[in-house]
Design a protein around this nucleic acid. Structure first.
Lengths: 350, 350
DNA sequence: TTGAAAGCGATACCAG
DNA sequence: CTGGTATCGCTTTCAA
């Protein structure tokens, strides 16, 4: 029959399964979605047909029929930090496209470095309203536990930017921060020609990303660049003003400072100090995240390189992962890998 | 069960338009798809309803009803070049996912640096079988004209990796190659400490990407790094053996060579020569594209840095652009921008 | 435990 | 010119 020819060319549908298995559409659907109320024998029959035909579900059609809408919640620290702002902006900008793809996103801002806040938000998550959560927050036992509780409710959670490892984690959306620190160290080692001291400006010891960066940085300097010495790192709490105030003392303490690795946020304070105080042009500065401010500093030559992660990619990736996890379908690891971007003044995006 | 709360936010459908405009579904569809046979007044009515409701078409549903299948053709040079291979592999790897998204891809290999071949393929493209074409090829007048002819048939074309500018081009999927050359120069300038000569190893003068890279490289060295001098560039035709054979003479001619910018393909020949001949460890080598071979060279310290573009991203982007153009819908510029990736041995992907 | 039938949002064919 | 209606692939009542 002609019918057979079509079967070869077109991809099989639920109707094909039903016909081959000799059951109704409803039953096929029950088996497909692991719904109860089907005899074991029937399940076998249907499963056999599914396998034989090499059935692949048409998610678009399924979502249409189901009138599925994904509701995702983003939990971000409530700072005026440019990078966090970039993430918020991306969530807003992408919301139109996400809308078209049947997903709605909302943002909850929480007090920075205040785990208890995150815990409360997470515990308040209602599975009837929220289909997935993306969190950017510190890694503390309480946060980890709260994340686990959300997952136990069957709601997928992804960690953004800073990892929140757990045995049953869904995924981490961000760069390998140890590797980012190593990269910064390599650039520092090769950009600095003379012998001297290097300072690491960090954010908070609660922030896993900051710790990892520092760790990677120290390792590589020690291994590969004997002409450099990393001095005790300074905690800037991502606070521009604090950082600005701390700088003079640092330069007094280390007259032979040849480089600064600004591994966290608060670059505004650093930039302000550097431009005001006219430090040596030789001083190599490597910072994190491409933002309007850091971009400007890079162009002016105040910064020498930037280690960055694409905020647009992070948000898209978080949404794709949440959707995939929510549907129980696989995702493309390579596509979801967030790259460690290196920016010099020559490869800035337009 | 609880009442649905977000009911208000339901997005309008064709039915809503029909109801508001007081016409039938079929008429709404005609207006929506700019089909003929509708009175101007009626069009006005419908358009008004569309605008009022803020209608956004559900592409998934439309594609379902239309049983739309996108057929895209990729035209690639027929070389054993690792980067081209990576592109082919990506096309193959992604085909499963593309299949799910109703798009089929096929590949046509053409003799490298042989414009006539591309022209023939392009002229043979049949609009009934192909919905879009992605080309990676040299920029010659004949190729440009052939591309134009394809577009005139109403078939979208995107250029990959190497741009094929034209007044009515659809899009270019790849990095800004001038900027890539500038980036390589900056790294070279900062990595090389002593004074000396730098060689640019290029591929073909037909390849626009190679030309642009060289141009950017020269510019930045001249501007910012007076301790370096760029010598006449050498054309390796992306051929490892040729490159291997040429190297000894080059080193004889320039005893004070301090760096090589391998701006094209054929790195295997360069690597082979370098490892065999034990040249100075000081020599800085910057090459293009992350491949198994170049990755190894970077890890071993044979290469100092790699400028790269993500082959997976390029293919995904080409497909998304072709689909969007084909449907006449807008796309997200930021998402489709291919980054100039810089790889050091510390930030290699796993 | 199973099936028939009514949609989801959009398109397309056939009448009128 | 315009409208009615079947259909796309899948889900979901409601009956049987």
């Amino acid at each position: 029959m002609e019918e057979q020819k079509l079967e070869v060319v077109n991809k099989p549908t639920v109707n094909d399964i039903a016909r081959v298995a000799g059951v109704s559409l409803a039953t096929v659907d029950r088996v497909l979605n692991r719904r109860p109320g089907v005899r074991a024998v029937t399940i076998q029959k249907v499963q056999k047909a599914i396998d034989e035909l090499g059935y692949i579900r048409d998610t678009a059609a399924a979502n249409l029929a189901r009138r599925r809408v994904y509701n995702f919640l983003f939990v971000l620290p409530d700072t005026d930090n440019e990078f966090v702002e970039a993430l918020s902006n991306q969530i807003a900008e992408q919301s139109r496209n996400q809308f078209i793809e049947r997903t709605r996103t909302s943002i909850q801002k929480v007090t920075p470095f205040e785990p208890q806040d995150i815990v409360e938000i997470l515990d308040a998550v209602d599975g009837r309203e929220v289909d997935g959560v993306a969190v950017f927050g510190p890694e503390t036992p309480s946060v980890r536990d709260a994340v686990k509780r959300v997952r136990d409710k069957g709601i997928p959670v992804v960690a953004m930017v800073s990892d929140l490892p757990s045995s049953d984690r869904d995924h981490f959306v961000g760069i390998d921060n140890v590797s980012a620190g190593r990269t910064a160290a390599h650039l520092m080692g090769r950009f600095v020609h003379q012998r001297g001291k290097v300072l690491v400006l960090t954010g908070s010891r609660l922030a896993r990303d900051h710790l990892e960066r520092r760790q990677g940085f120290d390792l590589v300097v020690a291994e590969d660049f004997p002409h450099l010495e990393v001095v005790a790192s300074v905690e800037g709490r991502d606070d521009p003003e604090l950082i600005y105030k701390m700088m003079p003392e640092i330069f007094d303490s280390y007259p032979d400072l040849v480089g600064i690795y600004s591994s966290a946020a608060g670059n505004a304070g650093l930039i302000q100090f550097l431009t005001e105080s006219k430090v040596s042009e030789e001083l190599v500065i490597i910072a994190h995240e491409l933002t309007p401010l850091s971009r400007e500093a890079l162009c002016m030559g105040t910064f020498d390189a930037l280690i960055s992660q694409d905020s647009g990619h992070i948000i898209r990736s978080a949404v794709r992962l949440l959707r995939a996890t929510s549907d129980g379908v696989p995702f493309n690891r390579a596509q979801e890998r967030i790259r460690i971007d290196i920016y010099l003044k020559e490869n800035l995006p337009p």
